[in-house]
C-alpha cells in the first residue's frame, strides 16, 4: 500500500556509527515499488559490523516476522541496532515484536495516489467517509484538489492545469467537463456545506473481526 525512499545518509549514519547491526529488508511490495538497488548500495557502503540480514516479503505481516525473529534470534541478540528497510508499517511491527531492541528505519514512506485497491491506479480516494462523487460527476475533488475545494475551482485554474503544479490537471476543470457531458452542470449550483472531518479522521480502535 505504501512505497519507500531511502533516508539521507546523514540522518542514519551518526545513529549507528560503530554499532553491531542486524538488517531487515522487506521485498513484499517489490512489484509495486521498492528501491532494491539503492538499498543494496546503502548496505554495501556500511562500515559497521553486520551480524545478520533477513530478507523477507511482507514485513507488515506480524506472523511472518515472528518466525523470522525466532530463526534469527541469536544474531538479533548479538546486534545492538536493528536496521529496517520497509514502509512505516513494517518498522512498527518489528519494533513491537522486539520492544527492548533499538530499531531504526532507513526509509521514508510515502503514499501513492490511487493505492487503496490493488495497486496504483489512475484514480485516488481519500476515504473521507462522506462521498461527494454524486455532486461531482464521479471525480473526487477531495483527493485531487490541493485545496480540497468543494464548491468549484479556485482562481488559479488555467488551461485545465492546477496552479500548485502545472503538471497536474485541475480536477475542477475535469469535473466541469464531465458534468457538461452529462448535461448536469446544474449540480454545480448547489451550495456544498462544510465537510464533516470527524467522519473520516477519528475512528474507533481497529475492529478485529477475526479473532
Amino acid at each position: 500500500m505504501l512505497v519507500v525512499q531511502i533516508k539521507p545518509e546523514e540522518e542514519i549514519l551518526p545513529k549507528i556509527s560503530s554499532k553491531r547491526l542486524f538488517i531487515f529488508e522487506c521485498l513484499g511490495c517489490q512489484e509495486i515499488y521498492f528501491p532494491a538497488e539503492d538499498v543494496e548500495k546503502f548496505i554495501d557502503n556500511l562500515k559497521e559490523e553486520i551480524v545478520g540480514k533477513a530478507s523477507l516479503d511482507y514485513l507488515c505481516n506480524r506472523e511472518f516476522v515472528k518466525e523470522y525473529i525466532e530463526r534469527y534470534s541469536k544474531q538479533i541478540k548479538k546486534a545492538q541496532i536493528l536496521l529496517v528497510f520497509s514502509c512505516g508499517v513494517g518498522v512498527q511491527i518489528v519494533s513491537s515484536l522486539l520492544e527492548d531492541k533499538i530499531v531504526y528505519t532507513c526509509c521514508d514512506t510515502l503514499y501513492l495516489n490511487g493505492f487503496q485497491g490493488l495497486t496504483v491506479q489512475e484514480f485516488n480516494c481519500d476515504q473521507c467517509g462522506e462521498c461527494y462523487l454524486n455532486y461531482t460527476g464521479g471525480i473526487c475533488p477531495i483527493a485531487q484538489c490541493p485545496k480540497h475545494l468543494l464548491n468549484g475551482p479556485c482562481g488559479g485554474s488555467q488551461n485545465g492545469k492546477c496552479e500548485v503544479d502545472p503538471d497536474i490537471p485541475c480536477v475542477w476543470q475535469q469535473i466541469v467537463d464531465r458534468l457538461a457531458k452529462l448535461g448536469r452542470l446544474d449540480k454545480l449550483e448547489e451550495l456544498v456545506t462544510p465537510r464533516n472531518w470527524s467522519v473520516s479522521l477519528i475512528s474507533e480502535p481497529p475492529v478485529k473481526r477475526f479473532p
Partner: peptide, 8 residues
C-alpha cells in the same frame, strides 16, 4: 495499512 491486516 500495509498489505497484511495488522493494526499498525
Amino acid at each position: 495499512h500495509g498489505i497484511s491486516l495488522e493494526e499498525e
